Structures are given as structure tokens and as C-alpha cells.
Amino acid sequence: MALASLLILLTAAGYALLCAMRPFAPCRKCSGIGVRTRRRTVTLCRRCHGTRARLRIGRRLLNNSRTIHAHGTRPQTTDRKAAPWQ
């Protein structure tokens, strides 16, 4: 049981490291080419819009959690001249 928990924890840590180092992955719809060929017509991929990359799910979750945290906390004051009691 402990070994399985350790493997799951290591896998999650590895995926978090991968999302931090390489946040973009090749598009799954166009295989990272950026265009789709259908019936002798070449069009831009609708999923990646021709950028050939997509944001990983883990990175998207991290970005959303950062946004939620930033909206839920007070803004930091950068004015050091003001006294804390004013």
C-alpha cells in the first residue's frame, strides 16, 4: 500500500515538473502540424488555431488556481512611505 502511494506521489510530482518545464504539448488533433487536410482542402486546425501546440491540463489547472488565488486575496501595497496605521 505504501509503495503504491509512493508511486502515485512520484508520478504526480513528475507531471507537475513536466508542466512547469514544458507547459505546451503538441496538438492532439493535428499531431503538431497545425493544419488539417479534409477532402483535398487544407485548413488550419480548429483546436490549436495553427499554433501546433496546446496547453497541458496540469498547467491549465495551475493557471486557474493562481488566478482564483489572486482574485481572492487583498492587493499588496507597494507604498513604503505610508505608515501602517494610516
Rank of each mutant, 00 (worst) to 15 (best):
R56Q: 14
T51V: 11
F24A: 06
G50R: 01
K29D: 03
C48D: 04
R36K: 11
F24K: 13
L55D: 03
F24E: 09
L55H: 07
F24W: 08
P26L: 03
C30A: 04
F24Q: 10
G34P: 02
G32F: 03
R28D: 07
R40M: 08
R36N: 14
R47L: 07
R28P: 03
R52W: 00
T41N: 09
K29L: 10
R36Y: 02
K29Y: 04
C45H: 00
R28T: 11
R52D: 02
R47V: 15
H49C: 11
R38F: 13
S31E: 13
P23F: 12
A53M: 14
G50D: 01
I57M: 11
T43V: 15
I33Y: 01
K29E: 14
G58W: 00
T41M: 09
P26V: 04
G50K: 02
L55W: 02
P26E: 04
T43G: 02
G32S: 09
S31H: 11
R52S: 04
C48W: 01
A25T: 05
V42W: 10
I57T: 13
H49L: 14
K29V: 14
R39N: 15
C30E: 06
I57D: 08
G50Y: 12
C45P: 00
C45E: 00
P26F: 03
C27F: 07
G34W: 03
K29R: 12
A53C: 12
R38H: 12
T51R: 09
R28F: 09
R28V: 12
C48N: 02
T41L: 12
A25L: 08
V35H: 10
R36M: 14
R28W: 05
R54I: 14
C45D: 06
C30S: 04
S31Y: 10
T41R: 15
P26N: 10
R46P: 07
A25Y: 09
I33C: 00
R39M: 08
